[in-house]
Amino acid sequence: MDWIAMATGFILILMGLYGALTERNILRIIVSFTVANTGVNLVLVAVGYMHGRTAPILDKTVPVAEAVARIIDPVPQALVLTAIVIGLGVTAMMLTYAYKLYEEKGTLDVSKCRDLKW
């Protein structure tokens, strides 16, 4: 289970990076970045998974006394929760700049923006 999820995450990272590096339309680059972002999150959560254990929430089925033997690692989950929220902020900023780029240049093609190239 964790192995499958980790492999999927790695493949998603590679596919997202491929898209981000080869596309020319800036919106497509941003979309590819979000796919890579999802892959990274998947790998991080898979690292915390342990076979045969349950979610880190204590209730009647997971009493406090047995918690150490019954729950999976909560730290990667807390980190990924942060990463997803920050990911939306980063995506929103990239989209804002894409919109501004379109407003200034009338194009979304990054290869046509040569202001800083020499």
Binding site: V45, T54, A55, V85
Partner: peptide
């Protein structure tokens, strides 16, 4: 994420991501 026993993350990903 739900299968990886991370319901918190699953909820965040569904709502935000």
């Amino acid at each position: 994420f739900l299968f990886l026993a991370a319901p918190d993350v699953a909820m965040t990903e569904a709502a935000i991501g």
